[in-house]
Structures are given as C-alpha cells and as structure tokens.
Computed example of a mutant assay.
Amino acid sequence: MLLWLAEYLVKHFTFFNVFTYSTVRSICALLTALFISLAMGQKVIDWLQKLQIGQVVRHDGPESHLSKRGTPTMGGTLIVASITISVILWANLLNPYVWISLFVLIGYAIVGFADDYLKVIRKNTHGLIARWKYFWQSVIALIAAFVLYAYGKDTGVTLLVVPFFKDVMPQLGLLFILLAYFVIVGAGNAVNLTDGLDGLAIMPTVLVAGGLALVAWATGNVNFAEYLHIPYIKYSSELMIVCTAIVGAGLGFLWFNTYPAMVFMGDVGSLALGGVLGIIAVLLRQEFLLLIMGGIFVIETLSVILQVGSYKLRGKRIFRMAPIHHHYELKGWPEPRVIVRFWIVSLMLVMIGLLTLKLR
C-alpha cells in the first residue's frame, strides 16, 4: 500500500524512491511488525486475562508445567495481525505470491483459532475434532497448491530443487500439488507440535523466516539465481517482505513469550506460522531447504511419530515423553536450558541450509 504512495510522491520528492526497493521495504516491514507486537502485546495479554482465556495444561505432562495453567493463550492473534498489517503496508499488493502467503497464514490462523476457542473457552479438552482440523488444513493447502500449479505449470514454479545438485531440477507436473500439500500441512503441524515450552517454537520460526528472506531475495534476482543455480521466480522477491514481517512479529511476541512466559501463542499462532513457512518454501521451490533449516520442527514431529509407532507395535516407549523437548525435561534439564539449546541447534541448521545453496 505504501509502495503506491511512494511511487506517487517520488514524482515530487526523489527521496521516496528509496521505498521502491524491496530490501528497504523488508526492513520497514520487520520494524513495523516488531513495533506493533511490542506496542500491543501487554494490551492483548490484559484483554486475554480479562476474558479468562488461560492455558490448559496436560495432566500427563511434566509437573513443572502445572504452574503454567491459566497463563493467557491465543496470543498468536497478535502475531498474525502484526504480520498481516505489516505486509499490507509494505508489500507490492499486485504481487500474487503476497496474497497466497496471506491466504495460508490467515486460513491456518482461523483453523487454529477454532481449535483454541473450543479448548479454552468452550472447555472442550480435545478442541476441534482431529479429522475436521486436518480437513480444513488440507482444503487451504490444496487451494493454494492448485492455484500455483494453474499459474506456473511446466515452468520454474513447478521445478523440484534438490540440494547439492545444480543440474537436478526435474519438472514435477501434478506431483507438485501433492508435494505442496504435504509441505504446507506438515509444516503447520510440525510448528504446532514444537510449541510446548516458553519461546521454543517462535525463535526457530524467526530464524527460518530470516533464512528464507535471504533465499527470496536471491530467487527474485536474475543474476543471483543464475549464480546459485536456482530457478529465477519473477514474484519471489516480495516474499522477502513477508519473511521479515514474520521475523519482526516473532521477535515482538518473544518479548512476552520468553521464559517465564506471560502469554502463549496457541494453535492460532503455531498453525499459522507453520503454514506460512510451508507455503513460502513451496513458492521459492525450496522444500528440501525448509526440511534442513526447520530441522527442529522435523525432529519434534519425528519424535511423536516414533513414540506412537513404537508403543503401538512393541508396547514400549522410545522417549520418556514426546514431543522430544519433554523427554529432556523429564531427564532433569531445566526448561530454559532445553529452550536455548534447541535455539542453538536451530541456528546451526539454518546456517547449514543456507550453505547448501552454494555447495551445488
């Protein structure tokens, strides 16, 4: 929106030409989302407390989590609002990739909100019935996938980029829809599973979004895309603004979510953030890169799958508790130690992911 204003004002004041650059607008988007989160954070917490929207704690979870009962949740509404406002202000609204990203972000936020609403306000312990939860996630993911396939069929938009191999980029055809579906739905639920400790999910999300912002910048630049042997995608540079808005909103939320948390994001935040990371990776043709950079989310998800599978097949558990962050808590690690060590691992994985762009 402000891009249009800048393009008008530049006719009279050349200074405003600086706002036509996506890099400048990306920084502005980060700062805007950060400011909104910091400015509105305490107000949102007070509002949630007034409505008595408090966290429901698992009875079979670590005893240390009992003190978290009643902490305001559904704070993810602040994250989603900050990202959306910032993107609308600073992104080029004629760019279809911006709207596809916002569609998935807001769509998954609505699904998460419904789940939180039933659990916290309607006191339904199980929240939204699992099959309906996955159904609506699937509908949103498939709509995005079909739109992208219809737009970019048999072009760089539907290529599969494989790390370490610069000449291996097969056309996926209809398999693109299937891959996009699993990446979006999988990422949404992976971040949701990771969101179990104070600040555990939001910082890896910020780090991955920051890494994807750099990839978006390179993918939208013909010269850098050619240099890195990745497909040049016309609309991808504006995704940098979406990514930096996620970084800003996430850091602002972390101000209140850091240990001991004053607010939790709830499913409304975790599903939305995971879903938008998934769609951004699909738009950039970097699904494998998301798998590497978001390794913490992958590990958390695999720990749940292995735990459930082992118990059903062998009657034995692999971990003391799943997701795996609870396993380390039950081993005696203080919660802040688990959180910070997972952050460090996440940072390392993002660096490794970015390194794969050059090692081709």
Rank of each mutant, 00 (worst) to 15 (best):
V104D: 01
D46K: 15
Q55V: 03
L148F: 09
V80S: 07
F135K: 15
I36G: 02
I140Y: 00
P96Y: 05
T155C: 06
I129N: 10
V139Q: 04
P96K: 09
I53C: 12
S67I: 11
V57I: 15
Y134D: 03
L34A: 07
L128N: 06
G107K: 05
A114K: 14
M74L: 07
L118P: 01
E63Y: 08
R122D: 05
R131G: 06
W132F: 15
G70P: 14
V104P: 01
T155I: 06
D116A: 14
Y97R: 12
A81I: 10
R69T: 04
E63S: 14
L66Y: 06
L89I: 11
I88Y: 03
S64T: 12
T73P: 03
G127V: 00
S64C: 07
D115I: 00
G54L: 04
G76C: 12
D60F: 01
R131Q: 05
L94R: 09
L51I: 15
N124Y: 08
I45E: 01
G76Q: 09
W99F: 09
E63I: 13
Q55S: 13
D46G: 15
E63A: 14
L94I: 06
G112M: 09
W90R: 08
D154S: 15
A39G: 12
I140Q: 03
A81F: 08
T73S: 03
G152W: 02
M74I: 07
Q55Y: 05
G107H: 04
I85N: 11
W132V: 09
W47L: 14
I45Q: 02
I143E: 01
Q42Y: 06
Q49K: 15
